[in-house]
Amino acid sequence: MSETPKQSVQDKLEIDAMSVWYGETCAVRSVTLAINPRRITAFIGPSGCGKSSVLRAINRLNDLVPGAHVHGKINYQGHNLYDEQVDPVELRRRIGMVFQKPNPFPKSIYDNVAYGPRLLGIRDRKSLTAIVEHSLQQAALWDEVRNDLHKKSGLELSGGQQQRLCIARALAVEPEVILMDEPCSALDPIATQSIEALMRDLVHDYTIVIVTHNMQQALRVSDYTAFFNIRKREQDGVELRWGELVEFGATKQLFEEPQHQETADYISGRFG
């Protein structure tokens, strides 16, 4: 980093003309948007519009999918994340991920949360315990599990607790950004509520990007919303489908005064 721009500008995640491909198929084309630090940005849109692909491209989880490739840039802290010098392993530690289906490891609660710190080489029992406690507190799970840390497997928790455990696990490696891929779609309304409240708490310290199918959720929790939609074209008798970013702006503005007819149709429930 030769220059030191202002903190807020530097921590911005700038997605610049990015396209995600799976083999010969384009999932999402030419997305440009900037994700503001310490804010919640929601990606909404119908199934297949590429919002999850964009999310997974941010911490390069798409690298694991055979045949997946990304064009364009994502600038973060003065680097293009797809540069050759960027280590995807270190990147994923700094940009954490919470998945659609809670996926605790088949280990104790303690070992689940301590997994990340241990990967980083922290062996000292005392520091590990401190990290586990702090992370579980941040994820509002501490009071419910404090007596079962070693006794219970992460898999024995309820769905909502499991998802909060996954959030605690992500927090334990002290990321800067947390990506959430439909974190509440497998949960009941009460568990959803607690996760949403948790997001509002966490946003004071973290940048959060959430993919959601639930427009009410986007409206409730996010500061900014990006609406993606599907584009189709007939070519040689084959129908090609891909996603595109339609509109991006402050959530309130996007829901109250959408700039595009498509957006208005979608948020009013006319399709999707």
Partner: peptide, 18 residues
């Protein structure tokens, strides 16, 4: 082995070996 376990691990900054 569920792919979600691998993704969860990679998502926390684990290397392939880990």
């Amino acid at each position: 082995v569920p792919q979600s376990l691998r993704e969860g691990s990679y998502g926390l900054g684990a290397t392939q070996l880990q």
